[in-house]
C-alpha cells in the first residue's frame, strides 16, 4: 500500500539558511502522525513543500504516491489542509465559504450545499451559518478551517499547529476530533505542543534545525531515548523539594510539570533510596513516588540538544 506521505532527502534552502535538511521519512496509512519540532525547526516549510506551495531545493516528497514537483495536482483533491492560521474571505458566511471550498475541489453545486450543511453540523457551526466570518473567534475560525479541510472527506489530513491559540475547551474538542479520525484517515499533525502530540498521535517524526532527529512509534521513541527516572508528588513544597534535589549529586535532571517533579539521570537506583529520606528531612508530605520512563518533551530536549527556540 502506498504511504500517504513519503519524503526522500527533502531539502529547502533560503540563501544561507537551510530550513529543511535532507528529511527522509514516511507516514503509515491510517495513522495519526505527529510532526514535532520547535518554532522555526522547519515544520511549516516541509508542509508547504508537501502541498506544492514551495519548491524543494533538493530531494522529493510524495503525497498519495504523487511527487510534490508534479505539475498535475489532481491528487490534492484527496488531501485536506488546515494551515496554522486559516485564512478566509471575511465577507462570506461559513456556509458560503464551505460551498466555495467544495467548489474548488470539483464538487457539484448540490453536493457542495449538502456537504457544507453536514460540516456545519459536525463542527458545531450551524448556529453561526448566517454570520459573517469576520466576526468569528479564533476557536470558531479553527473549527471552520477544519470543516473546510474535511469537506471532501479526504484520505489524508495535514494540519499545521491546529491547537495553537485555542482555549483549553477548544483544544480538548479538537484533539478529541483528531483522535476519532484514527484508522478512518491518515492525519499528519505538525505541532510544537508535545502534550497534544502525546495525547493523539501514535507515531512521531521529530525535527530540529531542519534535520530529522528521530521517527517511529511514540512509545518506541520514548522508550528508546528517555532516561530512567522518578516522578515525585508532594502535597506542598514542590519547588522547595525541586531546589533541594538539584543540589544532590545523584539527582540528574530535575523538571517540574503540572505539579509533579520529574527526576531523570543515570543513578536512579541511588535516587530511589535517597528521595524519601530527603522528602522526610524537609518535612514535606509525600503523595506519590513512582519510577518509570520519561515523556516526549524530555526526549525531544535530549535529541535536539536543548530547548533552544522552543
Amino acid at each position: 500500500m502506498t504511504a500517504p506521505i513519503e519524503c526522500s532527502g527533502l531539502t529547502k534552502r533560503y540563501g544561507e539558511l537551510t530550513a529543511a535538511d535532507g528529511l527522509t521519512f514516511s507516514v503509515e496509512p491510517g495513522s495519526v502522525m505527529g510532526f514535532v519540532g520547535h518554532n522555526g525547526a522547519g515544520k511549516t516549510t516541509t508542509l508547504r513543500m508537501l502541498l506544492g506551495l514551495a519548491r524543494p531545493s533538493a530531494g522529493d516528497a510524495y503525497i498519495l504516491g504523487k511527487s510534490c514537483r508534479n505539475a498535475d495536482r489532481s491528487h490534492l483533491s484527496a488531501v485536506g489542509y488546515l494551515p496554522e492560521s486559516p485564512a478566509f474571505y471575511r465577507w462570506m458566511n461559513p456556509r458560503e465559504f464551505l460551498a466555495f471550498a467544495g467548489d474548488i475541489l470539483g464538487m457539484d453545486e448540490r453536493e457542495c450545499r449538502a456537504k457544507a450543511g453536514e460540516m456545519l453540523d459536525i463542527f458545531g457551526l450551524s448556529r453561526l451559518a448566517g454570520r459573517k466570518i469576520a466576526g468569528f473567534s479564533k476557536g470558531e475560525r479553527q473549527r471552520l478551517g477544519l470543516a473546510q479541510a474535511m469537506i471532501a472527506d479526504p484520505t489524508l489530513l495535514i494540519m499545521d499547529e491546529p491547537t495553537s491559540g485555542l482555549d483549553p475547551m477548544g483544544r480538548h474538542e479538537l484533539l478529541t476530533l483528531i483522535s476519532e479520525m484514527r484508522g478512518a484517515r491518515t492525519v499528519f499533525l505538525s505541532s510544537h505542543i508535545l502534550e497534544d502530540v502525546e495525547k493523539v498521535c501514535d507515531r512521531v517524526v521529530m525535527i530540529s534545525k531542519g534535520r530529522l532527529v528521530e521517527s517511529g512509534s511514540l512509545r518506541e521513541v520514548v522508550e528508546r531515548h528517555a532516561e530512567p527516572g522518578l516522578t515525585i508528588e508532594v502535597r506542598q513544597g514542590t519547588e522547595e523539594l525541586a531546589r533541594a534535589l538539584e543540589g544532590e549529586s545523584w539527582s540528574g535532571t530535575v523538571s517540574l510539570r503540572e505539579g509533579l517533579i520529574r527526576l531523570a539521570g543515570p543513578d536512579m537506583d541511588k535516587a530511589q533510596h535517597e528521595v524519601p529520606r530527603l522528602v522526610s528531612s524537609l518535612g514535606l508530605p509525600l503523595v506519590s513516588f513512582e519510577s518509570g520512563g520519561g515523556d516526549l518533551s524530555e526526549v525531544y530536549l535530549k535529541l535536539s540538544g536543548g530547548g533552544d527556540g522552543w
Binding site: 502541498l51 506544492g52 506551495l53 505539475a71 495536482r73 489532481s74 491528487h75 490534492l76 483533491s77 488531501v79 489542509y81 494551515p83 492560521s85 486559516p86 485564512a87 478566509f88 474571505y89 471550498a101 474548488i104 475541489l105 470539483g106 473546510q148
Partner: peptide, 14 residues
C-alpha cells in the same frame, strides 16, 4: 498577504 492564496493553491488548482 492574507493567506487566501495559500488556501486556494493547496487545493488541486494549477
Amino acid at each position: 498577504e492574507n493567506g487566501t492564496l495559500e488556501l486556494i493553491l493547496a487545493h488541486p488548482i494549477e
